[in-house]
Design a protein around this nucleic acid. Structure first.
Lengths: 341, 341
DNA sequence: CCGCGTTCTGGGAGCGCTCTCAGAACGGGG
DNA sequence: CCCCGTTCTGAGAGCGCTCCCAGAACGCGG
């Protein structure tokens, strides 16, 4: 039980004195105790407990040049990012993995280009050991800012072309997952398979579209519609599809939210799913998948796992163990068959 | 333009040498330059620029015992907290105010009681100058944990009884806002005014209920329904109300989401709003208010401002300027009249 | 019982910064 | 022209910790 010394916090010096050893030995024990004989370890441990000693982080950082903190940079060009469930899951994964590494999460909220200088200074100021960011639009200047801070960084999501390709990233196999989704529709016997894609400036949307095209090499462009990842845009795209290509019997939608919208339109028009039109989504978001009817067949990706992986990659390069390890990771996806296809 | 010295980062010493002054003077300039003659200030400033000097945070913290970081503690007893728009706005306000104070936001994600020890150690370890937390349920052990860390803390939302009442908090005038809402219904001429409240273990819900009762001292208990702040629960409560008290002609709903649900039920049943039943919500959440029909009359509260206020209170007590300043703040609310009442 | 190799331990330097305090510089009045 | 008060400046001491390195302790073979 820590003593109730209300005064200044005990230092290593105090612990050492109480344990009857030198500061160096006390330090060794606090840092794992390797190379210290058991009886002494025990004595120091007890002193630590009795004094309620907690290492001074600043002092430690000063000499080790490591501070056990990682910045998570959240840019907000649109403005829902923070409340996006996808994002939330990823941050949760990051937070958990960081905790496992005894590192802290420092949130850097970027509100616009005006913030870039502040961010650069912060990143360059040695407050954090590394940074995690999310590749958003291709015209984003943020990656350059981070690059300028000369600090290790790992991106969530494949960066858009134009951004330094050497920056490591973690992304799921968007293209492969899309292929699997489309193949599933083909195997079901669908003949006119449409695709509702996401915005062309997001690599995930582009990759999924590529996957669709990989399987359906010469798909009629009329079977292609572009949405913006919102439920509403999915509903609209589906309506247009139905209007222009009444023969459509399968549709691969680039994310679950748009797929949900498509399902709504289908239902409104009295089209049976999956009998008349089979639908496959992407993401496997619990919040969406659970409430559609019929239950949505979709491509699952391990979002939390991707967050954790981002941290692992970053930690590896911080440890210097980075060489010989793949820079970027593409995580596998898997098709989850439910009722819609 | 900073020099491209790839080596170790320049120290204050280097800046001083280049500017031809002592380290002390350089330090003074870096920290505002008070009491240093203009020509010297200029010289030091130039050296800083040329060298690309950035102060070492750890070294500074070591001596000042201040590290310019504040923990935001997010507990996740339920699990949507992070993606809650209310919460998002509050964190945004916090983030902005923190930036204005040149302080950083360290996110502490608490996943359960198992994390409490970790949190306590972190808070006690001097990593952050203070903490911000949100008062959730009354059985939450977190406040005690924070208390134990002997670190200044400010709560978002009035803490439940049972939690040390000396802990400062920021909350909006739930009770007063509710009174205003109900009075508005009275003035409109409503005779049977119902209330759909939130969970009894949340102080905001309790306070709003109190406000309702303040105005309608002897309201029939049958006019009271308890929801859980979700849209669905609001719809259900409204249906029950209609079934049991068909004479209801006004309803004050404890939050916008439930009000939206109530509106849905009303519409389904063909009840005209506000002609047959007038509805007033609480929160004035942009995401809800915009899409209801008719547009929702509701009680506005400045959520972002509350976040900022939390930081201001914390900063004041960190600066020691805290004495004589109110510990907690109740921010005003205002009724926003739209179409539903 | 001594000498040498090996394992532990402690002294001390130094990480980069702030801040106190003494001394330098300066200016004005006598 | 000198003296004293005021404003600036710089030397130096530490903040609490890690880690290098020298030396102590220990064990074993001869």
């Amino acid at each position: 039980m820590p003593e109730q010394t209300t005064g200044p916090r005990p230092t290593l010096e105090a612990v050492a004195a109480r344990a009857g050893v030198s500061r160096a030995t006390a330090s060794r024990v606090v840092n794992g105790g390797a190379g210290v004989r058991p009886p002494l370890v025990e004595k120091v441990r007890r002193a630590v407990d009795e004094l309620g000693y907690v290492p001074n982080h600043a002092a430690r950082t000063l000499v080790t040049r490591r501070n056990g903190a990682v910045a998570v940079i959240i840019a907000e060009p649109e403005f829902r990012i923070f409340s996006d469930p996808f994002f939330e899951q990823q941050v949760r994964g990051i937070s958990r993995e960081l905790t496992a590494h005894d590192a802290q999460l420092v949130l850097l909220w970027v509100e616009g280009p005006g913030d870039h200088e502040r961010i650069a200074r912060y990143l360059g100021g040695g407050h954090v050991d590394g940074a995690l960011a999310f590749s958003l639009h291709s015209d984003d200047a943020l990656p350059a800012v981070i690059e300028g801070a000369r600090i290790p960084v790992v991106l969530g999501g494949r960066p858009a072309p134009g951004i330094d390709p050497a920056v490591p990233f973690v992304d799921c196999d968007n293209r492969g997952g899309a292929r699997e989704a489309v193949r599933h529709l083909v195997e079901r016997g669908c003949r006119s398979i449409a695709h509702i894609s996401g915005p062309a400036d997001q690599t995930s949307a582009v990759d999924r579209l590529h996957g669709y095209r990989d399987v359906l090499i010469d798909a009629d462009p009329a079977l292609l519609r572009v949405g913006d990842f919102t439920e509403e845009s999915g509903a609209r795209a589906m309506a247009e599809l139905l209007d222009h290509r009444p023969d459509v019997d399968g549709v691969f939608v680039a994310n679950d939210l748009m797929a949900s919208g498509a399902l709504l339109t289908l239902r409104e028009r009295g089209v049976r799913v999956p009998e008349d039109v089979a639908v496959v989504g992407f993401d496997d978001m619990a919040s969406v998948v659970g409430r559609t009817s019929p239950a949505l067949t979709t491509v699952h990706q391990d979002i939390e796992g991707m967050g954790r992986l981002m941290v692992k990659l970053l930690m590896r390069r911080l440890d210097g163990t980075g060489s010989g390890i793949p820079d970027s990771v593409i995580t596998p996806t898997s098709l989850v068959r439910r009722a819609s296809a």
